[in-house]
């Protein structure tokens, strides 16, 4: 199937560093990816791998200092939005208008002392230029669109009067109301129960169908990726180490880290008796990365050759399957057998 959807967001060689007393910490190191219109992609990785900082950089929400975007380009609808000043009108229009962001803990993204209706209509007034009354009506419509029962009454509620799943729906409603073309969902369901998680994710997926919204989800839950994403980027220590279609990554992972990650997830459906194959050691500290492959200390395939420098992403299969590993050729040969 050829995919001729237009590219909505393209990030090229993005680099973000934090300048601390201990020196420069490269939280995002040469990361590139793209999202097409109406596509759901996932960025996967463990805590501290730079997956959230990447998204914050795209939105220019990095706290400066100590953080700084040191290089790269971010094209949104063809325009390089990194060129905009982070306080400029253009950037403000993109935040919330073009790209909306949903965070892990909805209680901290909503203001506890304002009614849901005020917060919702304020955003709509900003981005759509409506007056208060019209914005309120739009807000009711948006709440209904995300499946909140009795939306008029809910507009009068404060965030604490809602459950976690409801609050997350309110944030999605804000994105819907402003007609955002891309929703960046940063661990949207980590704080929620599994049945609520399924409800919220199904809602996000329905937005793709209905409005052609693109969704970029940042998560550590590989199960969610399997169910909802089309393409996946796996990050480790500030770099993308493998990327490809959902099928390629989950069934034919080739990078040792991706393989290890998949093996260490407890499964619902496979043989129960065997032990989990854990990855040894700890995720590295970003301030103490070696000059060679960051996964080297934990990698079962590591050898002296791996110390020659940082491996680059190279194409290893059709459908844009890329991996960054020095021993990828051997791994591919073994996989063929």
């Amino acid at each position: 199937m050829t995919d001729n959807r237009e590219i909505l967001l393209e990030v090229k060689n993005l680099k973000t560093s934090f300048f601390t007393q201990a020196g420069e910490v490269k939280a995002v190191d040469d990361v590139s990816y793209y999202v097409k219109r109406g596509e759901v992609i996932a960025v996967v990785g463990e805590s501290g791998c730079g997956k959230s900082v990447t998204q914050m950089s795209v939105m220019q929400l990095i706290q400066t200092p100590p953080g700084k975007i040191v290089g790269g380009e971010v094209f949104f609808e063809g325009k390089d939005i990194l060129k905009y000043d982070r306080f400029s009108e253009e950037m403000r229009a993109i935040r919330g208008g073009g790209i909306a962001m949903i965070f892990q803990e909805p209680m901290t993204s909503l203001n506890p002392v304002y009614k849901i209706g005020n917060q919702l209509s304020e955003v709509i007034m900003c981005h759509k230029g409506l007056d208060k009354k019209a914005a309120w009506a739009e807000g009711v419509k948006a709440l209904a669109a995300v499946g909140i029962p009795d939306p008029e009454a809910r507009m009068e509620n404060y965030p604490f009067q809602m459950s976690g799943g409801m609050r997350q729906r309110v944030l999605i409603a804000i994105a819907v109301a402003c007609g955002s073309k891309l929703i960046i969902a940063d661990e949207p369901t980590t704080a929620l129960d599994v049945t609520t998680q399924a409800q919220v994710m199904d809602l996000l997926k329905s937005l793709v169908k209905e409005y052609g919204t693109s969704i970029l989800m940042v998560t550590h839950n590989l199960g969610l990726v399997t169910r909802y994403a089309e393409r996946v980027y796996v990050m480790y220590a500030g770099k993308v180490i493998e990327s490809g279609t959902c099928e390629d990554i989950l069934m034919h992972a080739r990078h040792p880290y991706t393989m290890g990650l998949l093996n260490s997830v407890p499964r619902l459906d496979s043989e129960r008796s065997q032990d989990l194959v854990a990855i040894d050691g700890q995720p590295p500290r970003l301030s103490e990365l070696p000059p060679y492959c960051s996964f080297f200390p934990r990698c079962p395939y590591a050898c002296e050759d791996c110390k020659q420098g940082k491996p680059e992403l190279q194409e290893i299969g059709p459908n844009d399957h890329y991996a960054a590993c020095w021993r990828i050729e051997e791994i591919l040969k073994n996989a063929e057998k």
Binding site: G223, T226, R227, M251, R267, D269, S270
Partner: peptide
């Protein structure tokens, strides 16, 4: 059924 599994084909 709410818990997704990591086996792509099975899922």
């Amino acid at each position: 059924s709410a818990v997704p599994i990591t086996d792509y084909y099975e899922e």
